[in-house]
Nucleic acid binder design. Structure first.
Lengths: 190, 190
DNA sequence: CGGTATTGTCAGTTTAGACTGACGGTTCAG
DNA sequence: CTGAACCGTCAGTCTAAACTGACAATACCG
């Protein structure tokens, strides 16, 4: 009868489905599967959960659950909760998707975008320096390469601007804001 | 064998630096290292290149270069070029960053976002169905879970809207559009 | 304080994914 | 038609990342 005893519980089945979808979305963002699953579980569960409960519920090791929680805390999307008279530590996730998305973008900007932009400018500077130090045809080629790098850097800079405006405006009104803007600036040439 | 004979050539050194930065950016986007490096090389090199030249230049195997090119073509950011009277096949990259970014986003939407959104709606529907089929406290809990999934789905939907507006407006004017919008809709509550 | 419950860490193992290199198919020159 | 040059594919190997489970550290109880 019960080939999959867990699936007999509708509540658990509903949760599992959502958890798997969220997990896959996380992976598309470069977040590892377990971290995504833990995050999804905490989002669904209003009551804060402790490490062992999470590990058992998701069928992962204690260590894996602990590490995943640490990651999520570093991303600022999960909080530690303690109750006086209870030595256990519980964890709960931010419940508003827009809030954690905002947090995630801010953190990603700090960790990934900023360092990469610095290296990009370094590369452009190095190209320019090399070009100025060369002569004739080689100089010409180096300058051309420098222009290409600059072109890419300009693009990247605009992209970061976009992130910054998002961070400044924030939250769920983005789409509406965006749509209105689109009407004000109709697409050039069709 | 010299330790690093290549680095004696400034042109090559400049290129290498940029290629590594681009490669790391690609990895942040979930694109594999070799694919990113090939793309960067083709962006920098105005003349189309053939597979063997790419493989030798980047110190990767012929097979790896070929597979990377195939990926880039599937993403629509690299074109095949042939010259009559020359049996070799050459490849060239789109030279405008905004154009390929646009292409990439469109492709990602098709491949990743759409399927995941479908599964998300499925999950919500399943939750609703399970809730209606249950009674008492379990029904209550299922309905609560359904609401959570819906809340996330709403967020995801707005995110897709954002992508769609980007695809409609397109290109480098995004940041300006966005900034103007921000002024029109000042942030609520500071 | 000693005992116990619980979380955090990390060396070793497993797993997923990337890379290589050999092979087969294709095109073109002679 | 034959051989040479070249591209695409994929089985096998290699590498990097994730996961496990045992141990260390910490907090709390009596």
């Amino acid at each position: 009868m019960n080939a999959k005893p867990d699936e007999r519980d509708p509540q658990r089945e509903v949760e599992d489905r959502f958890i798997e979808v969220w997990s896959d979305i996380s992976q598309l963002w470069g977040v590892n599967k377990s971290v995504g699953r833990v995050h999804a579980l905490l989002y669904l569960t209003s009551d804060p959960l402790d490490i062992d409960t999470i590990a058992e519920r998701l069928q992962i090791s204690h260590g894996n659950a602990s590490t995943s929680i640490r990651d999520l805390m570093a991303w600022g999307v999960v909080r530690r909760v303690t109750h006086p008279g209870d030595r256990k530590t519980y964890f709960e996730a931010e419940q508003d998707p827009w809030t954690w998305f905002h947090t995630t973008i801010r953190e990603r900007r700090r960790r990934e975008v900023v360092p990469v932009m610095e290296r990009l400018h370094e590369a452009a500077g190095f190209a320019e320096g090399a070009g100025k130090g060369a002569k004739g045809k080689q100089r010409e080629q180096l300058m051309e390469t420098h222009d290409k790098i600059e072109k890419f850097a300009d693009f990247a800079h605009e992209f970061v601007d976009l992130i910054d405006v998002f961070l400044a405006v924030g939250h769920g009104r983005m789409a509406k804001v965006f749509r209105t803007a689109a009407k004000l600036f109709p697409k050039r040439g069709g």
